[in-house]
């Protein structure tokens, strides 16, 4: 890590977020002008750090599940044996994206109850599309010449997939994961409507008590997290793929 402007900005953003979550009261003077009638300027109905971690955990669990399913499906439909399932898989994944997460919550709550579960389901469905599409494009655009060379040298189908196709598709797959994560960091706030622990709680509390400071805090923490996560996956991506895809 060098001291380039990008790294400085990264460190500053991270420090700001960590500082706010660890010592929120120190930021009280900043938010005080947004409150009326002596309302608390900093969210006081729960620990902000814990809410943030719970929020992050929900998003990450959903992302791991979406990634496993979407990548698996993407691999399956690009094999000769799975090619005929391509339209069906595409339709299913598209439905997951077009169906609003709020509606998924409404459907899921009667089946699995309140709490984290319906939120996980909604985020999982919502996050599938970008990963699936990118996996598929990544695998399909793998140079025919390369695949022929791999087969010609005696790689089995499995060795070819693991040794050639996936590594070459990896930048695109990670790009899909990154997109999916960022979308879901924001989307996860709606989980609080069904009693999932998360930053939505802060926003909803602000809306109910007409406290702009709360709304802003929930929104800012969510936003900073999204930016940092986007950046982190991007760094990971560059690290893994710098050789395969020269700039």
């Amino acid at each position: 890590m060098s001291l380039r402007p990008a790294n400085l900005l990264r460190a500053a953003t991270l420090a700001l977020l960590a500082g706010f979550l660890l010592w929120p009261q120190r930021f009280a003077p900043l938010f005080a002008p947004l409150t009326q009638y002596g309302a608390p300027p900093i969210y006081d109905q729960g620990d902000l750090l814990q809410l943030t971690l719970a929020h992050l955990a929900t998003v990450c669990i959903a992302a791991v599940a979406s990634t496993l399913v979407a990548v698996g499906l993407g691999i399956f439909v690009t094999r000769p044996s799975g090619a005929e399932f391509l339209p069906l898989s595409r339709a299913l994944v598209n439905v997951g994206q077009t169906f609003p997460p709020v509606a998924v919550l409404a459907v899921a709550v009667p089946m699995v109850g309140f709490g984290e579960k319906p939120t996980l389901i909604a985020l999982f469905a919502y996050g599938l599309l970008p990963i699936f599409e990118n996996t598929m494009v990544g695998l399909q655009t793998c140079n025919r010449e390369l695949l022929e060379a791999a087969s010609g040298m005696g790689m089995s189908a499995r060795q070819r997939l693991l040794g050639v196709e996936l590594p070459i598709a990896m930048p695109l797959i990670l790009e899909g994961v990154r997109l999916s994560l960022v979308i879901n960091i924001g989307t996860a706030t709606i989980g609080s409507t069904v009693a999932a622990k998360g930053l939505g709680e802060v926003i909803i509390a602000g809306l109910l008590s007409n406290n702009t400071a709360f709304i802003l805090q929930g929104g800012l923490v969510t936003g900073l997290m999204a930016v940092l996560l986007y950046d982190a996956v991007g760094m990971l991506e560059r690290r893994i793929c710098k050789s395969a895809h020269p700039a």
Partner: peptide
């Protein structure tokens, strides 16, 4: 077939080198 091919060298137009490997 894949075991057979390991015993036979195969070179194609445009080399087909793996871009992610040295």
């Amino acid at each position: 077939a894949h075991l057979l091919r390991r015993r036979i060298g195969y070179a194609i137009q445009g080399h087909g080198l793996f871009p992610h490997r040295t």
